Amino acid sequence: MDKKIQIAAIAFAIVFSVLVLTSPNDPIPLPEPNSNSDSDFVTVLAENLTKPRAIAVSDDRIFVTEKDGLIRVIQNNTLLESPLATLRTADVFDGGLLGIALHPNFSTNHLMYVFMTYEENDILWNKILQITESENKLVTAETILDKIPGSSFTNGGFIKFGPDNKLYVGTGTVSDASHLPQDLNSLSGKILRINDDGTIPEDNPFNNSPVYSLGHRNPQGITWDDSGNLFVAEFGPEKNDEINLIQAGKNYGWPEQQCSGNEKFEDAVLCYDPSIEPGGILYYSGESLDFESSFIMASMRAANLYQLDFDEGLSSQKSILSGIGRVRDVVQGQDGSLYVITSNTDGKGFPDSMDDKLLRILK
């Protein structure tokens, strides 16, 4: 498939005159969206994906998780009919097969990692699987981290390797009434940091614990800038979505604090009220696309892919792509292009006959 549509003049998908964004220190109205130049294009690489959740890109393949348990493969710009794996996941609204990450040495060891929700004795849990693949087929699957408390609605679910080659995991709270995100003995509502085999790094902030930071509600995306600073995007409860600068051992307040206001906790870098449902985020380090700002953020409720400079704040936020419905995840390819998945079949969107889609933004 080789459909191309211009980014320029794509219809803006939602009326933002009623949307107000706030910063802990300086409330700023949302700026008008803009588009890139006519030389930037979107290519539709795959259609009819079912509840896609996350993307991982290798040298010659793209892997997409579908919430119902499938790992789909796009090779040579073609969606393969047979999935790489079909996993038995819990059938809950915001759980299932969620995040995916490729080992830094994936091209030689063929290791990938997925975050999945499952049910055991009527209790929901999440776990991390390490999968070995060969020629787009699962060879082995081993659980390397288990018994992460699960939920029907707030599982978190991202997993990404950081610049230090450690695996970072975002976990959600089991309910908005739960105080487990404040409990260091629980894996709920945390950013976790583990080695590639599931063991605990010796330099983690809490002794013999995978916990890297605590006090999170429902983290959705993670990225690092070129200085190694770690940023996480997470859902609030209908409002107060947060972008947080994560530091080892720090507490981000949930459920006692939303965004800012309590000196015991870290303030959010950005706070969105009402919610825009941020998804995947990345720090763009390529040269193929010319963006005014370095950070790229997917948004589901706001139905946009944004560029945003966290140092400059909300005034720098501008639309890169709209008119495709809910945008779930965004990752950077090795050639500097961007890969994006929509999330219109997740039960909260309005899918067309070809949704959901994997798209590539390139010149």
Rank of each mutant, 00 (worst) to 15 (best):
S227P: 02
I200D: 13
L192M: 09
I191A: 15
E238R: 14
G172I: 07
W254I: 00
D197Y: 12
N185K: 15
G249C: 08
S178L: 02
D176N: 15
I243W: 01
V211Q: 06
E242Y: 03
W224N: 10
P210I: 07
G189T: 12
Q182D: 04
G189R: 13
Q182G: 05
I191N: 14
D226S: 14
G189C: 12
L187S: 09
Y252M: 03
F235C: 01
R193W: 09
P205R: 05
P201R: 13
S188K: 07
A177M: 08
R193A: 09
Y252S: 09
N185R: 14
L214Y: 15
S209A: 07
P181L: 12
N251D: 14
Q247H: 11
D183H: 11
N195G: 06
N207P: 00
P201H: 14
A177H: 12
S175G: 14
L230D: 01
N195S: 14
D196N: 15
I194M: 11
I200R: 14
A177W: 02
G172L: 08
S213Q: 07
G172Q: 09
G236H: 04
S209W: 03
F231I: 00
I222N: 04
N251Q: 05
N208E: 14
T173V: 12
Q182C: 05
R217K: 09
E202G: 12
V211F: 07
F231L: 07
N204L: 08
K190G: 10
A248M: 00
N244S: 11
D241K: 04
G198D: 08
G253K: 01
N251S: 13
G236D: 03
S227A: 13
N204C: 11
W224Q: 10
D203S: 13
G236K: 04
N244Y: 04
I194N: 06
P210M: 10
L192P: 10
T171K: 13
Q182K: 12
T173Y: 02
R193L: 06
E242T: 00
I243M: 11
D196M: 08
H179R: 14
R217F: 06
P181S: 13
E242H: 07
D203M: 08
R217A: 03
P181F: 13
P201I: 11
I194E: 09
D225R: 07
N207R: 14
P255H: 08
Y212I: 01
D203P: 05
P205V: 03
K250L: 04
G253Q: 01
Q182R: 13
S213M: 06
D197N: 15
G189V: 09
S188W: 07
L214S: 15
L192F: 10
I191H: 15
L184F: 11
D241F: 02
G236L: 00
N244G: 06
F235R: 03
N229A: 13
G236N: 03
D197R: 09
A233Q: 04
Y252R: 08
F206P: 05
N218W: 08
S186Q: 11
K190C: 10
R217I: 00
N251K: 01
G189A: 12
T173A: 15
G215P: 04
T223R: 03
D241I: 01
